[in-house]
């Protein structure tokens, strides 16, 4: 940066370039992290490692998709961790009773229900999304715990196709990609090329202007939060196939990293700016970072500390690069 400071035009041009292509520095960062990893433990970066990294980044990236689309309107969805856990738990407890198809349907219906409540609160009652989704998350946790007492005797079974999706490999790449690639394509296409995507950006950039242009924002919010919960539910199904041990807090630890992935990926928490491609790279960065910190063999405390500091540093640099020029 000191070199560039002598030529302000170059810096401004660089800033503009990065602002238009926020994914490029992120991909660079990802490769730097992989480089550090390879330097520390030569030979670790092989096919198997790449497969594993992608596998564990996928649920994170999917939950971060919920954060990305809600953040585009200036919101956030803090219920996704719980929703994913609910759908995972419901599907694994109902499969032995009802069979896989109806179990999947019911678990996704539960997820959609939470989303509808979120959308109702945010869109119609105009509650702050942070509070609304926090509250529904609490309620869903309670319901899950009560539900658990009724099904505790039935045992659990994970549908075989979910296990195939979660743990299987094709050409050393995880099968979860069969779900994720179409999903990511749909989200990317949906945000960039459809009216709904543009509405999200419009509401996030200036809700009043969007309303005055005839957008019925409550309908958008209702659809948005329902979609977000549905994605979270699908993530839960995938994740339980991956972990193969349903529990009452299965996907909850992914919640805060999912927010971090979206933020690192360059989506503004105030809305109107960002996209899903950055979020995917953000999720990969966080996953690689996790491996890196585990390899350093530091105490757990130091790992969390570094994790937080790196998230902060990346976002601070990002804000500096994109906003100041």
């Amino acid at each position: 940066m000191t070199v560039a400071a002598d030529q302000p035009t170059a810096l401004i041009r660089l800033g503009r370039f990065l602002r238009d292509n926020p994914v490029i520095p992120l991909i660079l960062l990802l490769f730097v992290l992989i480089g550090v990893l390879e330097y520390m433990r030569p030979g670790i970066v092989n096919e198997r490692w790449i497969g594993n990294t992608i596998k564990f980044a996928i649920p994170l990236a999917m939950l971060a998709a919920c954060q990305t689309i809600t953040m585009l309107t200036g919101g956030i969805d803090l219920s996704v961790g719980v929703v994913a856990t609910v759908s995972a738990f419901v599907v694994s407890s109902l499969t032995p009773l009802l069979g896989a198809p109806s179990a999947v349907t019911i678990s996704l219906a539960a997820a959609v229900l939470v989303g509808l409540v979120n959308g109702f609160g945010v869109g119609i009652c105009r509650v702050h999304p942070l509070i609304m989704t926090l509250g529904t998350g609490l309620i869903a946790t309670g319901c899950l715990q009560v539900y658990q007492r009724f099904v505790i005797a039935t045992g659990s079974e994970i549908p075989s196709f979910l296990e195939w999706l979660g743990t299987g490999r094709t050409f050393s790449l995880p099968n979860a990609l069969f779900l994720f690639l179409p999903f990511a394509a749909l989200i990317l296409w949906g945000l960039a090329r459809t009216g709904f995507g543009r509405l999200l950006y419009a509401i996030g950039a200036n809700e009043n202007a969007a309303k005055l242009s005839g957008v019925r924002s409550w309908q958008v919010f209702l659809a948005l939060y329902t979609l977000s919960a549905l994605i979270a539910g699908i993530t839960g199904l995938l994740y339980v196939g991956m972990i193969r041990a349903p529990s009452l807090s299965l996907a909850n630890p992914l919640l805060l990293p999912s927010v971090a992935a979206a933020v690192i990926g360059g989506t503004s928490i105030f809305g109107g700016r960002g996209g899903y491609s950055g979020t995917i790279v953000g999720a990969l960065i966080l996953t690689v970072l996790g491996t890196l910190l585990t390899l350093l063999q530091m105490p757990e405390g130091a790992r969390r500390l570094l994790f937080g500091l790196i998230i902060l540093a990346v976002t601070a640099l990002y804000v500096r690069f994109t906003d100041q020029s």
């Binding site: 927010v259 971090a260 105490p299 790992r303 969390r304 500390l305 994790f307």
Partner: peptide, 29 residues
């Protein structure tokens, strides 16, 4: 950090949540 980095408060304190959690574990595991 919020004032200097100009990063939204919710993001800074989210990151600091991990940092302070780590510090607590370093003081007493």
């Amino acid at each position: 950090l919020i004032v200097l980095t100009k990063v939204p408060d919710i993001v800074v304190t989210l990151a600091m949540l991990f940092v302070w959690e780590g510090v607590a574990l370093l003081i007493l595991s």
